[in-house]
């Protein structure tokens, strides 16, 4: 059985844990870098990216997660997780894990008053639209050649994949639809390196 970790420094950890349990896997809350050796895939949840980044820096997560990604282990970042996986946050000089060839803009839709629920098309997941929840969400403004765009809203990139790395600007952990988590679990079952 594959073990999936959910980075539990801050944010919507329990929602991811519940969905993973529904998908039949045993999730592990990751609070220490040593735990990363035991898992096959990692989810970096939504939360406040500056807070999570601050704690990641303090407790040496950046290097460890980078190594994990380079070994070909799948990582899925939602919202704050997307921001932290990017190689650059436009207009800010905060450190990131810098594993995915994307440049992102934080709070790109606006403040909380602009947060929304919207059904979006994700062709990879089939014809049925996905109920996406955007909360003070970022967007991906630039992607590298290796990055595949999986979903857009009005030409703004909100979901993408680069081999074993998956990101979404919205929160499937707040929706009653586990298709993205199942898609991620499929990535975990593949061999990437």
């Amino acid at each position: 059985m594959k073990k999936i970790g959910v980075l539990a420094l801050q944010g919507a950890v329990s929602e991811h844990i519940e969905i993973l349990e529904r998908c039949g896997v045993t999730p592990i809350e990751i609070k220490k870098t040593v735990q990363i050796a035991d898992i096959d895939g990692l989810i970096i949840p939504g939360g406040e990216s500056s807070t999570i980044g601050n704690l990641m820096n303090e407790y040496s997560f950046f290097e460890k997660i980078r190594e994990f990604a380079y070994k070909g282990k799948p990582i899925y970042g939602t919202c704050a997780g997307l921001i932290l996986m990017s190689k650059n946050i436009i207009g800010e000089n905060r450190k990131t894990i810098s594993i995915m060839d994307i440049e992102v803009r934080r709070n790109a839709f606006g403040r909380q008053i602009d947060s929304m629920e919207i059904d979006i098309e994700i062709p990879k997941l089939g014809n049925k639209k996905f109920p996406a929840v955007f909360i003070r969400a970022p967007i991906i403004e630039k992607v590298g050649k290796q990055v595949e765009i999986l979903a857009e809203i009005d030409d703004r990139i909100v979901m993408a994949q680069q081999e074993n790395l998956l990101v979404s600007a919205f929160h499937p952990e707040l929706s009653n639809d586990d298709r993205i988590h199942r898609y991620f679990l499929n990535l975990v079952n593949k061999r990437w390196r």
Partner: peptide
Amino acid sequence: MKKMGTFKVKSGLAEMLKGGV
């Protein structure tokens, strides 16, 4: 259809603050 200011969106922001100060 875009839905704004729903309870899910409102309580969702609170969910994102969990584990924080």
